[in-house]
Design a protein around this nucleic acid. Structure first.
Lengths: 140, 140
DNA sequence: GTGGTTGCAAACCCTTTGCACGGCA
DNA sequence: TGCCGTGCAAAGGGTTTGCAACCAC
């Protein structure tokens, strides 16, 4: 068994979820596809590994992963869901026209934000998670 | 003509869009409903003012307003669109279970963010707009 | 006058659901 | 063995589209 498989196995088992072939392949898909895949992209990836896995299962399984915080949904207006296998704090760069979404990591920014909300509690609201949506355009 | 109507009229005309009854009522709906209405909420509001306005027109018109930056879409995972009539820089508080979305205004935070990205340009990306998604829970 | 807008209704498409079968623990 | 997970296919529901009639400019 490869390191990658062990990692995937643990992610699933650590949440008390049953380990099945379907779940392993679906989680592998999110990780391997990397760039915030849509459900459809996950479906196509999974097909290449095992065409017998149904679309319904993929939809259900992705939701189970989200509920168990193994992956997360990218906040995205537009009827299509995207999933994100990165669980550490990071932000997103959006380009509207192209639908492109890149990750943006910056420790200094994270510290700045955490520090800000430590000092400035929001009345009547307890913060769990902060994420910056940065809209603009990619230049080549 | 009320001040409100003049304001709405100008918002539409200033973008070079034709002024129609439908557009005025639809824009009024987004402003009056206030709290990030869904398309369906806009449809219901518009019906009370003029039942003859069709749902298709409302969908098309809201998209036209977004394209012309008169209003904006709230980034939201979930198949339902929400619209936001507030154009000044602000942030959103999300509570997942309840679907509640409140606005969060903080000038100091805005300055902090603008200053940060002035000093820390993102290679290959030009920032147009920054918005924080703050997830957590409302306490009563 | 005329090109953009609207109304209508059907089509779309992603997502959800129900249920019987199958397989992990 | 028991119960959770899966496959299948149909239903659901918000959104989009096409086109003829209409109307601001």
């Amino acid at each position: 068994m490869k390191d990658k498989d062990i990692n995937i196995t643990n992610k699933i088992r650590d949440k008390g979820l049953k380990l099945t072939t379907q779940r392993m392949i679906i989680l592998e898909a999110v990780y391997d596809l990397g760039n915030h895949p849509t459900t459809d992209e996950v479906v196509r990836y999974v097909r290449t590994k095992n065409p017998a896995i149904s679309q319904g299962t993929i939809y259900k399984t992705l939701e189970i992963f989200v509920k168990n915080k193994i992956i997360s949904k990218v906040e995205k207006a537009g009827g299509v869901f995207r999933y994100d296998g990165v669980t550490q704090m990071h932000h997103h760069l959006f380009e509207e026209e192209s639908e492109r979404i890149d990750d943006y990591y910056n420790e200094e920014l994270n510290d700045l934000l955490i520090d800000f909300f430590d000092k400035n509690k929001i009345p009547g609201f307890q913060v769990h998670h902060i994420k910056l949506n940065i809209k603009g355009e990619f230049k080549n």
